[in-house]
Design a protein around this nucleic acid. Structure first.
Lengths: 349, 349
DNA sequence: ATGAAAGCGCTAACAA
DNA sequence: TTGTTAGCGCTTTCAT
């Protein structure tokens, strides 16, 4: 054990072991069978390197090999159960491949999104996973110019493979469930199901609205435009909108399809001020799952997207790209109220 | 707009603009006042660079400057509201400094923790933030050997500055609140407050147990050992333990101090099977805040640790290190039941 | 079975 | 005001 100032390099180890830098490099990087270095020497080099606290300078290796050992992912926000579990899976699969994950959040800002992609390219990441992109076209352009492999998760992008969850199916399932549970009170406006949250031009939201609309239409209850309140993702907006809706209706609607956890947070922010029992005549659903939302004061039907499989498939698509632009769909699951689902990392805390 | 195979380098731009590589470098890196390059030339270089889709190769720059522009952080898990909001803040502050955050989760595995530190060192990150370390000593050793600046968040480490939240105070506040709310039923064992979750040897948990114990002792109710169930963080363990406890007592205890969100998830997993009304005679508290936990079927008193300030202070300590080993404490806040708190990123979704 | 040397793309001294 | 050159630490031919 030595060391003080500078970090040890292969030259230091070379000097200490009497081998050449290239031998040290090969011994330490595992490329030593090909070079047929004696096991003895490898042992010695390994020992001395460990003693010196040597570790490969990844910037140098990366520069030389024109790759970094990093993988990038862009998510809208960290502080959201859906994306947080994506991060967890992304990291796990990255580790399996000895890659270091770099996860950045865009706050759903297209400008920020592009900045992040440029940064990741600068760092020569292996590939980029883009979840919940707001401007997939721009991203593909940037990546194409830099010859960067990328995959879209959660919404399809042009010119790159995508793995998305079946939003149409999920929305249908949730809407059907809500529909089966509405308790009419002879108040036409109130007795409808409302859709709240998300951005209507976002792919995922658009597909969910389609599912929502189709199920209602098939039931002979085609939704009017004011039933679809795509007020964005920020909690505050959803809070304002649900308050306004309740004002208009004089009550909560018979059914509520909340389109994201963040919108649901806002809805909850409003509910908090309501007297208990206010929800008895409403049925609530949320697209996306949160364990704590499973046991609220009122039952909540949730759709759980399988973020783990989403990421797994995304890695697959990146690693052996099929010819043409692939779009792979993963089925979401309906989680009944009061159900705690333990994810793939449930053993940890 | 050109480009096909290789990415453009400063040499390409140099050739295209008739300037030298170093001029191009200076023009593009912003170091050009010092070099007094004519604005004209800078403009030209900028334009051509943009046209060529040039972007700095950060591995090369990093190798040359012996730093990478990356900052590392280690958290136990991504999928947890407390650590997820830390990530969000960590990223925001990193961006302010033009640094790229690399966030890795250790799953509270000391081995993994060390592996991550080594990896981050290999990538020459600027500094490392360690949240919820399980083996701070080992981390400091590794960092010291590599001369790596680091800061402990959430628990104090040896040989490096730390910024922690005042766990003792938070636990006192929460315990006092619970104590004030217990509804005795003349059943000595049941009428007590139980502490569940966490690892007794972890710093944070230890401090919280102290606070818990002290408040109870001051109230003339010194806790017996079986009142403190430090069964770890995994939800499943907490679920088993709360079930066992309920078996022993024949009922839920009068008060429950849940020591983390993950343990709380487990507790909830048990509660789900209980008939409604089971909680009317229990008062529940949770150390750490989750917006969805604010509106459960039963009221929950929560302690919100100010992760944003924690991270802010940590950056401060890293950037101008005070002489000696600093430990800075940040006060947590008690959040009453049914309160939705909007964090610093509440505008986003 | 091993060593010498070139070069990845950049920046920083040093010249001019 | 700008150009030349060395070198960051590594991998990789090419010799031997």
């Amino acid at each position: 054990m030595t060391m003080q100032g500078r970090k040890a390099t292969i030259y230091d180890i070379a000097k200490l072991t009497g081998a050449s830098p290239s031998t040290v490099s090969a011994a330490l990087s595992g490329a030593w069978k090909a070079r047929r270095i004696s096991e003895q020497k490898v042992e010695l080099i390994r020992r001395i390197a460990a003693e010196q606290g040597y570790s490969t300078n990844m910037q140098a290796r990366g520069l030389r090999q024109a790759k970094s050992g990093l993988v990038g992912m862009i998510i809208p926000v960290h502080d959201n159960r859906y994306f947080a579990s994506m991060s967890q899976s992304f990291e796990a699969f990255a580790r399996d491949r000895d890659l270091v994950p770099v996860i950045a959040s865009s706050m759903r800002d297209p400008m920020e999104e592009r900045r992040i992609v440029e940064t990741l390219i600068s760092y020569a990441v292996d590939s980029i996973f883009i979840a919940g992109a707001t401007d997939p076209g721009a991203i593909t352009d940037l990546c194409a110019a830099a010859n960067m492999r990328h995959v879209f998760v959660d919404l399809p992008g042009p010119g790159a493979p995508s793995v998305i969850s079946d939003n149409y199916l999920g929305a249908r399932m949730l809407t059907q469930t809500l529909l089966a549970g509405v308790q009419p009170r002879r108040n036409p406006a109130r007795d409808r199901i409302y859709f709240i949250g998300g951005v209507a031009t976002d792919y995922a939201t658009a597909r969910r609205i389609e599912g929502f609309r189709d199920v209602l239409t098939e039931a002979g209850l085609p939704p009017s435009p004011e039933q679809i309140i795509a007020c964005g993702y920020p909690p505050k907006r959803a809070m304002q909108e649900i308050a306004a809706l309740r004002d208009r209706l004089g009550d909560l609607p018979a059914g509520l399809f909340v389109n994201s956890l963040t919108a649901f947070e806002g809805v909850l922010g409003h509910f908090v001020h309501l007297p208990p029992g206010s929800f008895d005549r409403s049925i609530i659903g949320c697209y996306d799952y949160d364990p704590f939302a499973a046991y609220l004061q009122f039952p909540v039907h949730m759709v759980r997207q399988d973020s783990h499989r989403l990421i797994e498939e995304a890695y697959r698509l990146i690693e052996d790209p099929a010819p043409g632009i692939t779009v792979r769909e993963v089925e979401p699951a309906l989680i009944p109220p009061r159900t705690i689902y333990a994810g793939p990392f449930g053993e940890h805390g």
